[in-house]
Structures are given as structure tokens and as C-alpha cells.
Design a protein around this nucleic acid. Structure first.
Length: 466
RNA sequence: GGCGACGUAGCCAAGUUGGUAAGGCAAGGGUCUGCAAAACCCCGAUCACGGGUUCGAGUCCCGUCGUCGCCUCCA
């Protein structure tokens, strides 16, 4: 396999080679847990879930770490306003996020570390940075000295000169360079804090990710992921800190997903245009969200609106159609059709890999899966038996599984109304036999209004919830 | 102002190293059906605009217009 990955650091696509053969160390920046997560977070989680699944599918042993930032200004502010402890607030949203991920069929990370569990490690790192002259303390705060990192700006493609020149940052006189950033923040009166050599305080945002990386994955990792809004300053700073500490190149491949666009704008807290994951999940299957994400390239912005949601709901139905069993009276399909089906299975397997290997081109991969769907349905329509369909359906299930699609066949229901609906269907069947179509259609229409969709086939009628 | 990405049919969207455009949704026509539904078949673009390189460009170069992201917390 020759997998190519677009690397933000080098700004090109290059062949993926892990540090250690057969193993992948992968870290993705998780959310700051001060409120419910929105579908933009879901996009990022889904993108990297697919990356992880594809690597696993190719035989890599993937160690996947996704962190939670569970202490920072926003958490503290919100907790204070709500009159609760910051830790409890964070805990609540961590649990909620984990549930969101489960609803989206995102595999749990190998580790889900949190900043507050890494304080000792962080303090140790800050000490080391000071020792090495890469950080300095002022009034209980510790700042990273950006000028100590000779290649600062290499990820985001900026230079310190440029940044300082057009700077919109209010200058803190205590800093040596306006771009210096906090690795340790002194606590204000009454704020949650931990003791440190510089007095009570808490970690800066960037250092915690460095700590969790180094602590859980080692000095060097293969893939570091996150939204492209994190490139600067977060990931830039993570590199500076980590490399200052270890003296080694930090992550080999930096992957960044594009932003989800709602009403033509990035979905974000500050502008108030957002949809919580929970809200979306209540209205649509998780597969719909996933389908939206994988039907475009992960680095592009994702168009998110009701039209696209609806289109993908239909697309999901179409995928589900491939799983349907043979017709009740299936006699076997003509050889010509079965040959075409076999060819399509092969073409799809090959096309899937070719697309995925090209920087995880999930949209292309999905396209070739839809080709298989059409061929399966065609074979079924031409009388293929379950036996004749089975191999193609297995491949279909495997490949959609690599993309993380659940494709749960719609259960008849989760309620105990089933027996009554079955009863109505039986009744309707008899009315149809008597050619009393007025009444039988009335049953169908009224059930439809209640969300029950009836499908008549040669072998009888079936139903499912809308 | 600086850095970066993008602009492909009504909508979403793919397009590997340049050789005449995947797929999904919608719309329309047809098969099947008592009628529907589902499924199947048929049907649509010269790729923002202008120039250039080339035998040949959506795919490389330059310019114009437009959209978006980052530069401040952010997936």
C-alpha cells in the first residue's frame, strides 16, 4: 500500500511512512469542554475516525489519542456564572461529548487524556523549558520565548517579523516579544489552581497538548490532526514547545480538516451560528452526518444546510437498498449479469483503495461504492439469489464499515405498536385481495401519516418507520 | 494589510503524474404495480472570467472578479 497524506508542514502530499513499522501514533486535538459540542466538532471527529479506521484496515496498529481540555478561561468563566465547580462542568461535557461520539459511531480513542490529569508532567515540562532558556517567568506567569525557536512559524508559514509588523495583538509590556505565549498562567484570586514553583496557577492551552503527546505517545508521533483553525497559534506553539523540550522533530504528518460552513460562515461559538451534535442526532441518523462529511474532501470547507442534509438522507436510503435480500421469487440471475456484478466488486475494491490512498479521498471512495450499489440492485432486480448477492454485499459492508457507516437496516420499530401495524397490514392484504382498493389505500395513507411506510412486493407487503 | 484555500451541471461533490469530465440529491421520461412505494433503465456540464505554455489543460503559469479560513478563544 502506498498511502499519500497531505502534510500541512511541508504543504505537499507525500507517502506515509510511520516511525515504527506497522504502528501509527496519532494525536487529534479534542474540544475544550465548556459547552455542548456542535456539528463542527463532529466533522473533525469523523474525519479522523475515518483516517484511523482506514489505517487499521490496512493492518496498522493505531494508537489514537484524543484529548480533552478541561481547564481554561472559558470553563472557569462559565462555571462561575453557573455557580458550579469548573471540574464538574468539564466532567459533564466530557461525558456528553463521549455520548455524541458514540452516537456518531466514532470509535473510542485508545486514550482520552485530560489536561488536569497531566499537571505534574506539565510542570516538569515548563521547568525544562526554563532550564533550556526557551521560557521565562514573570510575576508567576511563564512565557515561551518564541525567539528561542529558530524555525518558529514553519507550520503556519509565517515569520516573526511579519507577525509583529501587522500585529493586532495588544502588547503586554512584560513579554520580551509580543508573540511570546503563556505556558503557565498564574491564578487569579479564588480561581482553580495547582501549586507550582512559580506559585499557584494552571497550564497554558498549548502546553497541555504537548504534555499529553509526549506523555502518551512519546517524543515523536506520526500524525497530528485537528481543525485548520488550530494551525496558528495552537499547533505552531505545540511544535515550538515540544521540539524545544525533546530536541527532535515532533510530528511527521500534520493533517487539518476544513471548517464546516453554516450559512456560508464557519460554525462557531462566537458568532452564535451553531447546531449542537445532540440536536442533530435527535433529528437524523448519525450516518447522515457521517455521509455529509465523507462526501467531500476533508480539507475543503463543508457545506452544511438543510438541503444537503436532506440529500444525504436520501443517499443513505440508497446505500441501505444494497443490503436488501433477494426477491422472494428469485430464480437466479443470468450469467452475464453475475459476471458484471463480479467485475464491479473488483472495480469497487480497487477504486476504493485508489481513492483512499490519495490523501483519504472519501468522496471518490464513496462514488465507487455507489457504483456497486447500483450493480447489486440491478442483479437483484434481474433475479439474483441471496447466495449470488452475498459476496458483493459482504464487500459492500466491509467498505462502508471502513468509512464508519453503520447502515443499520431500519428496525421495524422500537415500540410495541408492531403487532397492531402487522394486523393492519394483514387486514389491508385481504381488502386488496377483494379489490377493495379504496379501503386498502386508506389504510396505507393513514399509516403513512403516522410515519409508517408500506412497500408492496410480489412476496407480500413490508413496512418500516419513515 | 499579511498568509492560505477554493470557484466543476438546479444543489452537494470527485477528478491521481495535463490527453477531451465519478458519484449523490433534485427535475423529466420509461419498466414494474390495481394505484403507490421500492428497485431498474434513459436523460444534463467544456469546468468563474481573460490571457499564456503545449500537438493537447478542469488539471501548469500570469492577471481579474468572487467566496471562505487564519492572523484573537475556536474542530
Amino acid at each position: 500500500m502506498t498511502l499519500k497524506i497531505y502534510n500541512t508542514l511541508t504543504r505537499d502530499k507525500s507517502e506515509f511512512e510511520p516511525i515504527e513499522k506497522g504502528k501509527v501514533r496519532m494525536y487529534v486535538c479534542g474540544p475544550t469542554v465548556y459547552d455542548n459540542a456542535h456539528v463542527g466538532h463532529a466533522m473533525s471527529a469523523l474525519v479522523f475516525d475515518v483516517v484511523r479506521r482506514y489505517l487499521t484496515y490496512n493492518g496498522y496498529d493505531v494508537h489514537y489519542v484524543m484529548n480533552f481540555t478541561d481547564v481554561d478561561d472559558k470553563i472557569i468563566d462559565r462555571a462561575r456564572r453557573l455557580g458550579v465547580e469548573p471540574i464538574d462542568l468539564a466532567e459533564k461535557y466530557i461525558e456528553e461529548y463521549k455520548q455524541n461520539l458514540q452516537d456518531l459511531n466514532v470509535l473510542p480513542a485508545t486514550d482520552h487524556p485530560r489536561a488536569t490529569n497531566e499537571i505534574d508532567q506539565i510542570i516538569g515540562m515548563v521547568e525544562k523549558l526554563i532550564e533550556k532558556g526557551a521560557a521565562y517567568e514573570v510575576d508567576g506567569d511563564v512565557y515561551f520565548r518564541v525567539e528561542s525557536a529558530k524555525d518558529y512559524g514553519k507550520l503556519s508559514g509565517r515569520s516573526l517579523d511579519e507577525m509583529n509588523a501587522g500585529s493586532r495583538i495588544r502588547v503586554d509590556e512584560r513579554k520580551e516579544n509580543p508573540m511570546d505565549f503563556a505556558v503557565w498562567k498564574s491564578a487569579k484570586e479564588g480561581e482553580i489552581s495547582w501549586d507550582s514553583p512559580w506559585g499557584p496557577g494552571r497550564p497554558g492551552w498549548h502546553i497541555e497538548c504537548s504534555a499529553m503527546n509526549l506523555g502518551h505517545l512519546g517524543d515523536q508521533i506520526d500524525i497530528h490532526g485537528g481543525g485548520n483553525d488550530l494551525i496558528f497559534p495552537h499547533h505552531e506553539n505545540e511544535i515550538a514547545q515540544s521540539e524545544a523540550i525533546t530536541g527532535k522533530p515532533f510530528a511527521r504528518y500534520w493533517m487539518h480538516n476544513g471548517m464546516l460552513q453554516l450559512k456560508g460562515e464557519k460554525m462557531s461559538k462566537s458568532t452564535g451560528n451553531l447546531i449542537p451534535i445532540g440536536e442533530f442526532i435527535e433529528a437524523h441518523p448519525g450516518d447522515v452526518m457521517r455521509l455529509m462529511v465523507i462526501s467531500s474532501h476533508y480539507r475543503s470547507p463543508l457545506t452544511f444546510n438543510s438541503e444537503v442534509i436532506e440529500a444525504n438522507e436520501r443517499a443513505l436510503d440508497r446505500l441501505l437498498s444494497a443490503k436488501k435480500p433477494a426477491q422472494a421469487d428469485a430464480q437466479g440471475a443470468p450469467k452475464e449479469i453475475l459476471d458484471q456484478l463480479a467485475n464491479q466488486v473488483e472495480a469497487t475494491q480497487q477504486g476504493f483503495d485508489e481513492s483512499m490512498q490519495e490523501d483519504f479521498n472519501t468522496a471518490g471512495a464513496l462514488g465507487t461504492i455507489f457504483d456497486l450499489v447500483r450493480m447489486i440492485n440491478q442483479a437483484r432486480a434481474k433475479g439474483a439469489t441471496d447466495e449470488e448477492l452475498s459476496q458483493a454485499q459482504q464487500v459492500f459492508t466491509t467498505l462502508t464499515g471502513v468509512l464508519g457507516l453503520e447502515l443499520k437496516t431500519r428496525e421495524k420499530s422500537a415500540s410495541n405498536a408492531d403487532v397492531f401495524i402487522d394486523l393492519l397490514l394483514d387486514l389491508r392484504q385481504e381488502l386488496r385481495a377483494l379489490k377493495n382498493y379504496a379501503l386498502s389505500d386508506q389504510i396505507r395513507d393513514q399509516l403513512a401519516e403516522l410515519g409508517v411506510v408500506i412497500e408492496d412486493t410480489a412476496a407480500g407487503s413490508t413496512w418500516h418507520w419513515e
